[in-house]
């Protein structure tokens, strides 16, 4: 199945892209997807925040086909 992935701010610059579509296996969690992205990109990034379909989720959140997954650094608005 496929999910769309978005990166923001310093993480977008580190990844070299703002978004991509990734093929994943069934029954994987958002943190498992994150780990596989870090391994394939060969990068290290601490303190990532994760959202699925524009809502914060816990790391064990299970992904579904067509989900919009976002990874970003700690927020600094206001």
């Amino acid at each position: 199945m496929q999910v769309s992935v978005k990166y923001f701010a310093s993480l977008r610059e580190l990844m070299g892209e703002a978004s991509s579509v990734i093929d994943i296996e069934e029954n994987i969690s958002v943190s498992e997807l994150w780990q596989s992205i870090l391994e394939s990109k060969k990068v290290v990034f601490d303190n990532v925040m994760m959202a699925v379909n524009m809502e914060y989720v816990k790391s064990e959140h299970q992904l579904k086909s067509g989900d919009e997954v976002a990874f970003f650094p700690p927020v600094t608005g206001g």
């Binding site: 310093s10 927020v75 600094t76 206001g78």
Partner: peptide
């Protein structure tokens, strides 16, 4: 603490993402 905004500062010595509030 939660709204997705990110600040990038342009300073006299370069450009830097703000890491935390």
């Amino acid at each position: 603490s939660g709204a997705p905004f990110w600040k990038k500062e342009e300073t006299t010595t370069g450009v830097k993402w703000v890491e935390k509030n």
